[in-house]
Design a protein around this nucleic acid. Structure first.
Length: 255
DNA sequence: ATGGTAGAGGATCTA
């Protein structure tokens, strides 16, 4: 079984790339973030033709998340229970005995900004919810854009980024708190190429210089972690014309 | 410290 996540930065612009990627890679599940469209405009039919069901929660202009899957979804949730939040950042769905969450953690803009404090307020709600999900589902996979580079080795220039948004200690502590629930960063289960990243700024030719950060992650519950046989980043799509600034992360599970 | 690019939507806001 193959699960993947991809921040597409507008599903409208990236739809043909997503369809091509599905056809090529045949994942069982693909989580999307930053779809940047409202539910009425979600391309259900185009995705269905490619052989995938969709669940989604959209929003005008910003945010929006989805899960595409070969199997039909059940028990769909489109918000963190109990959290009043205008921003559409999470969706959860069940496929057989597998629970999948697609998450778009707030970016935070800049340390000290209002968006940064929103991020730091949001993360404990997210953590508490995942704690409950782990109780309810033995096989839980949390995939998405976490907007946190967990360690210095996940940053092309740790000195330059020290203390800055995506790398600051409060954010990294929040990420470690997620792992403390019993979730595993699947990427680090395996030996990986050095300087592996999932996001590169569009500016300053950052991709060509490999000036990236690893901020997209797949976290697995204990039972899934034991079944995980690979975790990879698909850099190739970043070389396409009009690419997203993020690339897919993929896990393979022996289920 | 600043500014560089991309997307949405039609001037800025967000990343």
């Amino acid at each position: 079984m193959k699960l993947a996540t991809w921040n597409v930065n507008s599903l409208k612009v990236r739809l043909s790339q997503v369809i091509d990627w599905l056809m090529e890679n045949q994942p069982d599940v693909l989580c999307l973030q930053e779809i940047k469209l409202i539910n009425e405009n979600f391309p259900v039919n185009e995705i269905k033709v490619a052989g995938y069901e969709s669940v989604f929660i959209g929003q005008k202009t910003y945010n929006g998340v989805a899960i595409l899957s070969k199997q039909a979804a059940s028990k769909v949730i489109t918000a963190i229970p109990g959290l009043a939040d205008e921003q559409k950042r999470v969706i959860a769905a069940t496929y057989g005995d597998l629970r999948v969450i697609s998450a778009y953690v707030p970016n935070g803009e800049q340390v000290g900004s209002e968006k940064y404090s929103y991020k730091l307020r949001w993360l404990p709600h997210f953590t508490q919810w995942l704690q409950q999900e782990l109780i309810d589902y033995k096989k839980l996979a949390v995939l998405g854009d976490f907007n946190i580079a967990p360690e210095d080795r996940d940053v092309y220039d740790p000195k330059l980024w020290e203390g800055r948004v995506l790398c600051s200690e409060p954010e990294r502590t929040a990420f470690r708190n997620l792992l403390s629930l019993g979730l595993t960063d699947s990427f680090r289960l395996f030996e990986q190429p050095e300087k592996s990243y999932t996001w590169w700024d569009y500016r300053m030719m950052a991709f060509r210089r490999n000036q990236g950060l690893r901020i997209d992650h797949i976290l697995l519950s204990g039972e899934l972690s034991s079944a995980c046989v690979a975790c990879t980043v698909d850099k190739a799509v970043r070389k396409l014309e009009r690419p997203s600034d993020h690339v897919p992360v993929i896990v393979e599970l022996s289920l």
